[in-house]
Design a protein around this nucleic acid. Structure first.
Lengths: 258, 258
DNA sequence: CCATGTGTTGCGTAATACCCAACCCCGTTC
DNA sequence: GAACGGGGTTGGGTATTACGCAACACATGG
């Protein structure tokens, strides 16, 4: 029987192994039997998968003959990826301080394809349940970060990246292109973007741009938290701090603007 | 023919796929043909491997029909791993500041099995060629970090972890157990450890312990750089700063000692 | 002590992933 | 501008490879 694969050419066992990694990322710790159940394969198959992953330090088991979790090999790989994007490295201390002062979760995003890509996150002191966004992509039109990134684009690029239909997430999501363009213009004047309930009900976010040495916007920094904490009254104050943080990161990247 | 596998049970294709990840971590960017050559497999095999990896966002190719590099999925996985070790999160700002002040590379290690495991690194401003140690394991007896970790152990644990022969790296490496024990005692009294040319000729490192809320040592922080910059004269000064940083991190972990 | 739960290991089979070759697509060369 | 070369990509047949099965070692607890 030919591999009833998804898209023509994918290796079954590798696909399963990588799924194991994602499962472990999601659940923290899993046993061979649990993994087998989730993958719908035999125990022995699951075992051989994790054994191979273990050989590369991507997973490790808690105390010989125990459950499995993600291993340090992952950190090695991550180190190699972030080495190139020194944006994360340089922004880290600034993000930390911002998260400390504001008490909310701080994120850094960059433009990747047609979406905003989260490349770093620092949990705020007040964060209850922290969802890790790092590595995830979010539509540009529904987030404060996205609007900041859009504000940095030329007219034509803006049109390109907003060409599709603007997906609705909540009833506050901006789905009209003219409305979006107006908001983005405002962001450009004001220097920061706000999104309230636009991606998720109850979530308020404020973002500001990060510029590189030559003045082009390379990313955005944001603080976000529940609407009952970041009330409309607080927005200007938080925005000022986020903008200052964005400026600080820009300065660390060699930017010398005003 | 039965699989002439290494250690009983390992899946060939998965093993190759993970090797691809490590290759990409090492070389940054590689094409299908290059990967095939390094793996000693056919082009098409290499292609199917990277395609499967791409499906999980672990690799991505630069501009359709181009070379491959590590992808954002790696960051997602890494986020899940470091979420548990909040040591890294809390230590980050302190490490950054220390690296800034001292100008040398700062590392954080924890005890993992019989070795020291590097869990974080901040490159110093003066760092020329930065090798990323994160995720790597280094023998306890040959590094300043290792000696700090050893100093926190009970007599029996110390004996366990130094039971094997102490591998020699340079002619300064401590290979005598009695000598090691003496040095570790000194570390315990003095509050910091020094290693000069012990792991690598020309490399000087200074480490101090990090304690958790209950007072047990959970890791170590170190500054390291070339011996011509960190001369014996500088050691006490740098050591004081490293110790202070270790205390600061400990405080952030809830430690309330003197 | 047996019952039941882990993680682990040998073995035969056939499904699977490999190699091969041809393909497309882009740059260069002549 | 046809021919070449070098990238990445795509079908197909074969036997290598990885799968499922079942029995194992080891822990836990009734």
């Amino acid at each position: 029987m030919r591999a009833g694969g998804e898209s023509g050419s994918t290796i079954q066992s590798v696909d399963r192994a990588l799924t194991v990694l994602r499962l472990l990322a999601r659940h923290g710790e899993l046993g061979v039997t649990e993994i087998a159940a989730k993958l719908k394969v035999h125990k022995s198959t699951a075992f051989r998968l994790v054994t191979t992953l273990e050989l590369h330090d991507l997973v490790e088991q808690h105390s010989e003959r125990g459950k499995y979790r993600l291993g340090v090999g992952v950190l090695q790989l991550a180190g190699a990826t972030t080495a190139k994007l020194d944006l994360v490295q340089r922004a880290k201390p600034v993000s930390q301080r911002l998260a400390e002062v504001v008490g909310e979760t701080v994120n850094i995003t960059v433009l990747s394809g047609h979406e905003a890509l989260y490349v770093d996150q620092v949990a705020g002191s007040a964060a209850l349940q922290l969802h890790n966004w790092v590595g995830q992509r979010i539509p540009l039109h529904a987030t404060s970060n996205g609007k900041v990134l859009l504000a940095s684009l030329s007219e034509v690029r803006f049109d390109e990246l907003t060409s599709g239909t603007l997906k609705r997430f909540t009833d506050k999501t901006i789905t009209d292109r003219a409305e979006l363009r107006a908001q983005v213009d405002e962001v450009r004047q004001r220097g920061y973007a706000v999104a309230i309930d636009e991606l998720e009900i109850g979530l308020t976010a404020i973002a500001a741009p990060i510029s590189s040495a030559d003045g082009t916007v390379v990313g955005s920094i944001s603080a976000s938290g529940p609407g009952f904490r970041i009330t409309p009254d607080h927005v200007p104050d938080v925005a000022a701090r986020v903008v200052a943080a964005g400026r600080e990161v820009s300065r660390r990247l060699g930017w010398h603007g005003h």
